[in-house]
């Protein structure tokens, strides 16, 4: 309760334009045991901690909101050593205040630069979901017949790794008892792997990767992502930004969605206009839309600065929610449709 009060107070006192704050803390400790008729008997204990803050700012009757948070499979020392409640409150308030003066987002096709970290949502939606094996087994995914084929720029290499210590999406064993492996999904633009659960791997004669996950005991395990990221490239982030004359910079994202055809969206909660290689005016929320293979081919620069997004993400599929993390270095996409109004 002290943690949640600290985050609340930090946001509340950050700026006099902060009108309302909500801070939320939750933790859980899940003991699990999996036994099956093949003779498997495994146990695991999974901690989960999450502290988030939503701040609402107000100026001349106009309101905006900001969000920040953190956590993972960690202990409370995380909020002392890695991310303090104060910082969570301040960052939420900062975003809310910044948006008060933000312009309407542009509308139409333009070059995009994605900030590192948060932007992993793009990879989660555009690639991760459609390489979950059930969609390939059912041949509904646009990737079902693309194994070993080029689907994107040679700069693009993507992994899903459930073994990164203390991450929200990590686990020691998946929910079917399979030890997880760091799984190569895309290598230099070529499809190399699928995320497998037992059912799909048997039906497809594919190798288990330890991605069979379930929300809880009452749901059936299905192939899911864990910690999905695009590997770091060679470009300095400043050079990537400098290379864009006029475009849209995605600073933070709030989620996305994909359908099996590869059409996907993600929602920007804070963006900036890029003019002559520099960030200028902050802009408000907008949704971006594209088709995955088209966008993967338009990734023109990949930064050396791989970061992971906030440790607060949840992915929904077939009505089941599981914790996940996404990561991404600074990226440049040559052209994508931005759904603003101006």
């Amino acid at each position: 309760m002290a943690l949640v009060r600290e985050a609340y107070a930090a946001a509340q006192t950050f700026d006099k334009r902060i009108a309302k704050v909500k801070a939320h803390y939750s933790d859980s400790l899940k003991h699990m045991c999996i036994a099956n008729s093949e003779g498997l008997l495994v146990h695991d204990t999974r901690p989960m901690v999450k502290l988030v803050c939503v701040a609402i700012s107000e100026k001349n009757g106009k309101r905006e909101s900001g969000y920040w948070g953190g956590g993972g499979r960690v202990g409370l020392e995380y909020f002392r050593d890695v991310l303090t409640p104060r910082r969570i409150g301040e960052e939420a308030a900062r975003e809310a205040v910044l948006l008060l003066d933000a312009a309407d987002a542009p509308a139409g096709e333009m070059p995009i630069v994605l900030a590192p970290g948060h932007s992993g949502v793009l990879i989660h939606e555009a690639v991760g979901h459609l390489l979950e094996a059930d969609f390939s087994r059912k041949k509904t995914s646009v990737f079902w017949n693309k194994m070993g084929k080029r689907v994107g720029s040679p700069l693009v290499t993507i992994y899903d790794d459930p073994t990164i210590p203390s991450f929200r999406g990590s686990y020691n064993i998946d929910d079917e008892g399979t030890p997880p492996r760091k799984t190569l999904l895309i290598e230099k633009g070529v499809v190399r792997g699928l995320l497998q659960d037992k059912l799909s791997s048997r039906l497809m004669h594919g190798r288990l990767t330890g991605h069979g996950r379930r929300q809880d005991y009452s749901c059936a395990p299905i192939p899911r992502m864990a910690n999905t990221y695009i590997a770091a490239g060679d470009d300095a982030p400043e050079d990537i930004l400098r290379s864009v004359k006029k475009g849209f910079y995605v600073a933070s994202l709030s989620g996305g969605q994909v359908e099996d055809s590869g059409k996907f969206t993600f929602s920007v909660s804070l963006g900036y206009l890029i003019e002559d290689g520099k960030l200028t005016a902050p802009v408000k929320q907008a949704t971006l839309i594209g088709t995955n293979i088209d966008i993967l081919n338009k990734i023109g620069r990949v930064g050396s600065d791989l970061e992971f997004g906030l440790q607060t993400g949840t992915c929904s599929k077939d009505g089941q929610d599981v914790p996940v993390t996404d990561g991404c270095p600074t990226l440049r996409i040559e052209k994508m449709t931005v759904g603003g109004t101006s």
């Binding site: 989620g255 359908e259 059409k263 929602s267 839309i289 759904g339």
Partner: peptide
């Protein structure tokens, strides 16, 4: 497709 709804401002932006 996508969420893109902000009740604080009433703003809507969604894939269509």
């Amino acid at each position: 497709l996508g969420h893109g709804l902000n009740s604080v401002t009433g703003d809507i932006s969604r894939g269509a």
